[in-house]
């Protein structure tokens, strides 16, 4: 029983990394009603750029690397907006979806090219052993990731509901044409949304790599899949939903692994996704309505 509980705690804590990525996916969807498939990949790209920039400063601490990752995240977020959404007819949903898939593959190949596919040692944010609570142990770095997720959520909600930019963002999300008629610069609002999610992606990428301990393109594929699952299960466009779904997926993964083994684990996660799509297509935070 103890093993089971420990596995659940481990999973929930690691689920914080899924939450962080899920928030980025869900924000873009919430504002633009578009899926940015390249989000996880670009986030890891920002983390890698941060690592490279940090390596140029002798003796730079992990926090300097994270600072660079944050900055690069914002820049990359803007570039993704320009390349995949601004230059491509935004009304063509398939075109923007495919362009972000293309961006995902491009960023993956770029990281592969520069790292020759080798895993890169990523600095740990919290250099200490696990915290012990009786027999139960908890990873301190994942607690920090969880706190960052919660702070990010609070900041996002404050931005959306307490600022003029947030008001404009919500207006664009609800009625883009009406918002434009009211004088809101839709393109600017969309660009800022991508920069903000990019900044968040930079933090997320750095924290995920820090939690894993290494940076590798092997991370981007599973993270993209988990980010999408979290977004769907949490409810498309719901930031609190992304956090809860991330923790839930992390915990369930370890439960499935505990009972069915590692080779069947992902099978059940996918089945869970289908269960949500069929029985609760709007996700956890959706109003109860039919899938049609």
């Amino acid at each position: 029983m103890f093993d089971f509980l420990q596995a659940v705690v481990d999973g929930i804590l690691f689920g914080t990394t899924y939450s962080l990525i899920g928030i980025g996916f869900t924000l873009v969807f919430g504002v633009m009603h578009k899926i940015n498939m390249s989000y996880a990949s670009v986030s890891i790209g920002a983390a890698y750029a941060g690592l490279l920039a940090g390596s140029l400063i002798p003796g730079a601490s992990a926090w300097v690397v994270f600072g660079f990752a944050l900055a690069f995240g914002g820049v990359f977020g803007y570039l993704v907006y320009i390349i995949c959404f601004h230059l491509i007819p935004i009304r063509n949903e398939n075109a923007t979806l495919m362009s972000t898939v293309g961006m995902l593959l491009l960023v993956d190949e770029l990281i592969t090219h520069f790292t020759t596919g080798s895993p890169q040692n990523y600095p740990s944010m919290v250099e200490m052993q696990n915290l012990q609570f009786g027999e139960m142990s908890v990873r301190p770095d994942l607690i920090v990731v969880f706190m960052v997720s919660v702070v990010s959520m609070a900041a996002m909600l404050a931005l959306l509901y307490r600022t003029r930019l947030g008001l404009a963002t919500r207006a664009v999300a609800q009625q883009p044409v009406a918002a434009q008629l009211c004088g809101i610069r839709v393109v600017r609002v969309n660009a800022i949304t991508f920069i903000v999610t990019g900044l968040l992606g930079g933090i997320a990428g750095a924290l995920v790599c820090s939690a894993v301990g290494t940076l590798s393109i092997l991370i981007t594929g599973p993270l993209t899949v988990k980010g999408l699952i979290v977004t769907v299960i949490g409810g498309l466009g719901s930031v609190p939903g992304a956090i809860i779904a991330g923790l839930m997926i992390g915990g369930l993964e370890n439960i499935f692994q505990h009972f069915r083994g590692v080779t069947e684990r992902d099978l059940y996660v996918m089945l869970l996704l289908f269960a949500f799509l069929i029985f609760r297509p709007g996700g956890i935070f959706a109003a109860g309505r039919g899938r049609d």
């Binding site: 596995a7 990873r139 995920v208 894993v212 599973p222 370890n254 505990h258 590692v262 080779t263």
Partner: peptide
């Protein structure tokens, strides 16, 4: 203990 090629969480295996 078993894991997969692109796994990122090894807490259970290490336990």
């Amino acid at each position: 203990s078993k894991w997969l090629l692109n796994d990122t969480n090894f807490s259970t295996q290490v336990r």
